[in-house]
Amino acid sequence: MSENATEVLVGGAVLAAAIGFFIYAGQVTGAGGAAGGSYPLTASFRSADGLSVGTDVRLAGVRVGSVTALDLNTETFRADVAFTVSEGIEVPDDTQAVVASEGLLGGNFLELVPGGSPFNLAPGDEVYETQSAVSLTTLLLRAVSGGDVE
């Protein structure tokens, strides 16, 4: 085999590996979109620290959607978060949205904690029960000072 043919084969293998990597990365990050579609929901938080567009939305530890928008409401001074949930997952209307952490050094995600209501949220509805992330710095200051720190 000539040197030129070898270079073409190696180049083709590298190109195929790169294409495979991009397809895999798209599937892992959800860039290709959900297979069954999704529907939008919103929630308003006192602090959405740690959330950004693309952050996972999880239910029972399973990724069911992602954050699509994050804006400051200038009337209430709260963070308005828009997110999606996969079609086929019915979320009760008394569900709580919690900014949760994967651990001390892990990233944050939006966790949905379903309630017991027989009624479900419709596309575009708002989750009214919300809980912001717990600040590690605030907890440490409370422990050291022995009092309330805001």
Rank of each mutant, 00 (worst) to 15 (best):
V28C: 09
T6W: 00
V57M: 02
P114M: 03
A18H: 09
Q27F: 15
E129H: 10
E126D: 06
L110E: 01
V53S: 07
V14H: 05
Q96S: 15
A48K: 01
A13D: 09
L72W: 10
R58A: 03
L110F: 02
V57K: 01
V62M: 10
T68S: 14
V14M: 08
T55H: 02
Y24G: 11
T55A: 13
V98N: 07
E129Q: 09
P40N: 05
A97F: 03
G65V: 02
R63Q: 08
G147S: 02
A60M: 08
E3N: 15
A143K: 12
R46Y: 14
S47V: 09
L112G: 10
D71F: 06
G147E: 00
V28E: 07
Y128K: 15
I23T: 12
V62E: 07
V10A: 11
F21D: 00
Q27M: 12
N73T: 05
V85K: 07
T74N: 06
V62N: 08
T76M: 12
F109C: 05
S44G: 10
L9T: 11
G65S: 01
S44Y: 05
V14G: 07
N73V: 06
A17L: 13
A5W: 00
L140H: 05
V57G: 09
V91F: 09
T138L: 13
Q96L: 14
G116H: 09
S38R: 06
V64Y: 01
T76F: 14
R46D: 08
L104P: 07
S66M: 12
G147R: 02
E3Q: 15
T137R: 13
T138A: 13
T138R: 14
Q131T: 11
A17H: 10
G37N: 01
V53G: 10
G11K: 00
E111R: 12
L121W: 04
E7S: 14
V28Q: 11
E129L: 11
Q27C: 13
S101R: 02
P114L: 01
V99F: 03
A48V: 03
G36R: 12
T29C: 13
G88E: 00
D80R: 09
G61F: 12
Q27W: 12
L15N: 04
P114I: 02
G106E: 09
S135F: 06
I19G: 08
T130K: 01
L112A: 09
G32Y: 05
T84G: 14
N120D: 04
V144C: 11
F119Y: 05
N108F: 03
L51C: 04
T42W: 02
V85L: 05
T138D: 08
L51E: 01
E111A: 14
G50S: 07
A13H: 04
A122Y: 03
S47G: 12
F119T: 13
Q96T: 15
G12L: 08
V85S: 07
G88Q: 01
F21S: 04
V85Q: 05
G103E: 00
M1T: 15
S66D: 13
G61H: 11
S44Q: 04
D93R: 11
E7Y: 15
A48Q: 01
V91P: 10
L70A: 09
G65N: 01
L112H: 07
F119S: 13
V14P: 04
P123E: 02
T137G: 12
G36C: 14
Q131R: 13
F83G: 10
G106R: 10
A122H: 04
E129M: 11
L51K: 02
G30D: 03
A122N: 03
A34R: 00
I23F: 15
V127E: 03
T29R: 13
A79V: 07
